[in-house]
Simulated scan of single mutants.
Amino acid sequence: MTVRWGIVSAGKICSDFVNAVNSYPGKGDQVIAAVAARDRSRAEEFAKLHNIATVFDSYQAMADSSGVVDVVYIGALNPDHFALTKLFLKKGKHVLCEKPMCLNLKQTQALVNIARQKKLFLMEAVWSRFAPVYLALEKDIDSGKLGDVKLVEVNFGVPLISVDRLTKKDLGGSALLDIGVYTLQFAQFIFKDEPTKVTAVGTVNEEGGGPLPFP
């Protein structure tokens, strides 16, 4: 059975996702079937670039559609993740949502409850969990090759000061919700268990988000 993907938004991350799917030799009968964006012209440009057959005028139109898409990939800005994921789940579509799935625990729990109630697939798109190096590392830990792991230190940094989605509070601005997700999930990937204590230190910028520029 062909698995038909709908792409929600037409930005760079969505383009990266489509390229990854189309270039993966083991994708089987999966196909990128449709795209929707707030601006139809952007969706049409995206569809032309990636040879996508169907363009929707709106996210609502894709959600309301029947027989076009089975699962959607949501690559919109962080503050839109909750509403869009809820929309598509309510309409019976499976969802792969870009990280972070939501801006807080309450929103995420609400989506998980809907997915369970409707028996739909719902997943946060943390791509690195499927990288060959992760799988090899997990195998070495499980086999005892690395001994009993007691400490994990993770560092990940890139220039972010000029990125609005990180610096502006109304866009969900947070280094933690962007690349910080990779450091948190890596620790959980190694230890498997939930943390018993979380300690955080940070400073917000003048717009209520983060990060701050280096002195």
Rank of each mutant, 00 (worst) to 15 (best):
M1Y: 08
L166I: 06
E206N: 13
M101P: 03
Y73M: 14
W5Q: 03
A43M: 08
D70W: 12
Q185S: 06
G208L: 07
L77G: 09
A36R: 11
M101R: 05
E124F: 03
I114C: 00
C97F: 00
D164C: 04
I13G: 05
S162A: 12
S66Y: 00
A33C: 13
P195D: 10
F186N: 02
C14F: 03
V133D: 12
I32K: 12
D142Y: 06
A43G: 10
P159D: 13
R165H: 07
Q107L: 04
T196S: 11
A115P: 04
K119W: 04
I161S: 13
I7R: 13
A43N: 06
T2S: 14
A125K: 03
L89E: 07
L122H: 04
D148R: 13
I141R: 15
R165N: 15
F88W: 06
D80H: 04
S58V: 01
Q30G: 04
T54P: 07
N155P: 02
F130A: 05
L212A: 03
V68D: 06
E194K: 11
V72C: 11
L122C: 09
L176C: 02
F214T: 12
G208D: 13
Y24K: 05
A136Y: 00
L184F: 11
D170F: 12
I32T: 09
L151S: 02
W5L: 14
I32L: 08
L212Y: 07
K12P: 00
K12M: 13
V181D: 00
K150M: 11
V133P: 01
G209I: 02
A200T: 13
A76V: 09
A63Q: 06
F56V: 10
M62W: 11
L49R: 15
V133C: 08
V154Q: 11
K106D: 00
D70M: 05
D70F: 09
V152H: 10
L171C: 05
Q109G: 07
Y73C: 03
P211W: 08
G92C: 10
S9D: 14
T108Y: 10
C102Q: 03
K90M: 13
P215W: 01
V3W: 12
V3K: 15
A10D: 06
M1C: 09
L105H: 01
D140A: 15
F88C: 14
P213Q: 13
N104Y: 00
K118I: 03
A175V: 14
E138A: 15
S162D: 08
E206D: 14
S174P: 00
S23H: 09
F189D: 01
S65G: 03
W127E: 12
V8E: 10
I161E: 15
E44K: 14
Y24C: 05
D178N: 15
K118R: 14
K192D: 14
A136Q: 11
